[in-house]
């Protein structure tokens, strides 16, 4: 029981205060891929902690001394003995919810997010049914004076650029824009955002998941900028961003996503110091520790129990 409480406590702390760990980190802007990995490590750790908490409730330590036959009945019997008829039953339900309902809820949320995105994407593809593909650019060119570029993922991916953007930008700048979009497709960034959306659909009431899609959305932009800056220069990409941005019609009363473009340009013009190998090692180690923590919380009493060869619930 202590184990389950420890796991729930850990999950609670992570769900409430986890975001501060990454938001405060200065390396996140410099190493967006590491930041993405960290967000998902925290989310995985949270889900794992809940699932293991469920198991820790129904699986008393007897399982490690007795045989597996009649295990569940035995567990329930032990729980009833200890917490009374109703209390024991409530605990069994809670355990089942934590162990099964949490991951299944997440799974269904992921399926829903992916499915609705696929429907929206095929609608957008139909809008572009008559647009001509330009083999040299590897993109579909749409006749439209407004400079814009985007990609539609799935089915090999589709990169779209307007004739307005082709007129506005010079050759290297166009190449930088297309490299940015190619990086989105090659990195399957839409799946990362979809998983983040699944997290919000399932646990949106927790700070850890509430703004996950926006955070991942911004981080994949930075990742794509970095990839584009490897083939073009950072300065060229910054110019493309500025030129395209300056030609947009601004939108009043914008949601929280605003401010991304300024941050991206500033970051390209004045690259923040990326963490060195030691820093990367620490961050990855931290991620691994976050995922391992729930397992360790479960393992410690088991190891202790084995050592003492006595197994109370």
């Amino acid at each position: 029981m202590t184990t389950a409480l420890a796991l729930l406590g850990y999950a609670g702390l992570l769900g409430l205060f986890g975001p501060q760990l990454v938001d405060r980190a200065r390396w996140a802007m410099a190493a967006p891929r590491l930041a993405i990995a960290t967000w998902f490590a925290l989310a995985a750790s949270f889900v794992l902690a809940l699932a293991l908490a469920g198991m820790a409730i129904v699986m008393p330590m007897e399982i490690f001394t007795g045989g597996p036959v009649g295990l569940v009945q035995e567990c329930i019997a032990v729980l009833r003995e200890q917490y009374g008829e109703i209390g024991g039953f409530a605990l069994v339900v809670l355990a089942a919810v934590l162990t099964w309902a949490v991951p299944i809820r997440l799974l269904f949320a992921a399926i829903a997010a992916l499915r609705s995105a696929a429907v929206d994407r095929s609608k957008l593809r139909r809008e572009l049914a008559v647009a001509r593909r330009n083999g040299d650019l590897g993109a579909v060119v749409v006749g439209c004076s407004r400079p814009a570029a985007y990609c539609i993922p799935g089915k090999g991916g589709l990169i779209v650029i307007t004739s307005g953007a082709l007129e506005l930008l010079d050759g290297p700048q166009i190449e930088a824009v297309l490299a940015h979009e190619r990086a989105h497709l090659a990195g399957h960034h839409h799946l990362l955002v979809a998983f983040a959306q699944a997290g919000r659909r399932a646990f949106g009431w927790l700070p850890l998941f509430a703004h996950l899609p926006e955070r991942i959305g911004q981080l994949v932009e930075l990742t794509a900028d970095d990839a584009a800056a490897r083939s073009a220069t950072r300065n060229t990409l910054a110019r493309s961003l500025l030129n395209v941005a300056a030609a947009q019609v601004p939108v009043e009363a914008l949601a929280a996503s605003g401010g991304d473009t300024v941050a991206r340009v500033e970051r390209l013009l004045d690259a923040p110091a990326a963490p060195g190998p030691a820093g990367i090692g620490t961050i990855l180690g931290g991620n691994a520790a976050a995922v391992a923590a729930p397992v360790l919380i479960v393992a410690i009493p088991i190891i202790t129990a084995f050592g003492m060869a006595c197994c109370p619930v």
Binding site: A113, L114, S116, A117, D120, R121, K123, L124, E127, L128, V130, A131, V142, G143, C144, R146, A148, A149, Y150, C151, I152, P153, V160, T162, V177, H180, E181, H184, H189, H190, V193, A194, A196, Q197, P213, I216, G217, V220, A224, S240, L241, V244, A245, Q248, P250, V251, E252, A253, L254, S257, G258, D260, T261
Partner: peptide
């Protein structure tokens, strides 16, 4: 068609990844 795509309320990031989002 382009205006329809760009104005669509489609989810940012999963349906369509834009080079530049809407700006204030």
């Amino acid at each position: 068609a382009m205006a329809a795509v760009l104005e669509s309320a489609a989810d940012r990031g999963t349906t369509l990844l834009r080079f530049i989002g809407k700006i204030s």
